[in-house]
Amino acid sequence: MGGDWQELAQAAVIGLLFAFLVAKLISTVIAFKEDNLRITRSPPTSPAAPTTPATSAPPQASLEGVRGDTSDDGSDSDWEGVESTELDEEFSAASAFVAASAASGTSVPEQAQLQLYGLYKIATEGPCTAPQPSALKLKARAKWNAWHKLGAMPTEEAMQKYITVVDELFPNWSMGSSTKKKDEDTTVSASSSKGPMGPVFSSLMYEEEDQGNDLELGDIHVSAREGAVDDITKHLVAGVQVNLRDSEGRTPLHWAVDRGHLNSVEILVNASADVNAQDNEGQTALHYAVLCEREDIAELLVKHHADLQIKDEDGNTVRDLCPSSWSFMNQAN
């Protein structure tokens, strides 16, 4: 008699449990679908989507009901989607990264996992209102605790903390991600670069120059261009000609002047570089200094008796090209 009763009760309990699991499964699948759509957009608030079928299981429905009531102006969707802040983007990128590394089996300390879990739930769903799982379900209980203990932490704070935890776990996580990570200080300002509306700041796209691709430079020209004083000295000591020409007829002095390296210019003229050497277009180092408006270098060259009368192939002397009245240009010669 008693056995029958027990069996019946057991069957009823199992039946109920099964029904609950099925309902939960359905709700999860639905929630998962929504989540997918949500992840790249601002995750924090997604009020009950009208498409969610009414069959959605009770825990899900109640969660959304509560959130709808607590939001400050009841029209959260108004505030979404237009302004994808840097924080949103970075949070999305960070959570995608965590997902990817979890999938690839990267080990993360249990404590950090739970912390991330809690912050993620706050950031995407808000405060925990789900019922506490049975104490026997250790893992579920631990996760629930991690979420629940964060209370009513604001979404933005949760996202920021999530990113901080990911930063600590994987200092280089953002290197490969599509969201460019800026310095900590500029994360706020960075979102200004492309506002939701308005003009765009554009600068010149860098194009590999077509001219000069057949240019042949000696090592000493490169050193002069970079202003690498020690290397220039080494080349000279090793017996490299101080007036060595590149394929455009430029000497190391031309290159040092062009890039504005005063120290390198001094080394070269002191090593008896020819200050009046002309490149294939007839220009001297002083032509370069004048064109590039490098006054200190021009003055140095004039002191070393650079010739002001030399004309380039266009017939211009340095005075013809001189943009401003540099007094030393008039005193010399």
Partner: peptide
Amino acid sequence: MAAPNNNDAAGGASASGTTSEPAQEDTSI
């Protein structure tokens, strides 16, 4: 209690490597 983890796993770093639910772990990955 298999299902909910699908939902959590992505951003929440679902405690992976637990032994009890191998089948579910696969689907979640």
